[in-house]
């Protein structure tokens, strides 16, 4: 995988952490807080684990707390993908 996109992230979020009926994933969510989207720290850990297995990029334990929005998560994953190349 060369780039991890917002659509990849949405797909993983839906699969491993479900989707809130009220706060959906439709539209521009790049800068929405994960908490506002209804995803707590457990959901993020599950998401990070799934990303690691799919993309081969690990999110470190201490980084989990800093990933507050989809954009930050995408940046972190994509920077690490570039480093890998």
């Amino acid at each position: 995988m060369s780039e991890f996109t917002i659509d990849d992230l949405k797909r993983i979020l839906r699969a491993c952490a479900g989707e809130d009926d009220s706060a959906g994933l439709e539209g521009d969510i790049l800068d929405s807080g994960f908490e506002d989207l209804g995803y707590d720290s457990l959901a993020l850990l599950e998401t990070a684990s799934r990303i690691e297995h799919e993309v081969g990029v690990a999110v470190l334990d201490e980084e989990i707390g800093e990933i507050t929005t989809p954009r930050r998560l995408l940046d972190l994953v994509n920077n690490r993908l570039v480093e890998k190349v």
């Binding site: 699969a15 952490a17 479900g18 989707e19 809130d20 009926d21 959901a43 599950e46």
Partner: peptide, 8 residues
């Protein structure tokens, strides 16, 4: 069941 609860 709420969508958020299904996977867990």
């Amino acid at each position: 069941v709420p969508g958020r609860l299904v996977p867990q």
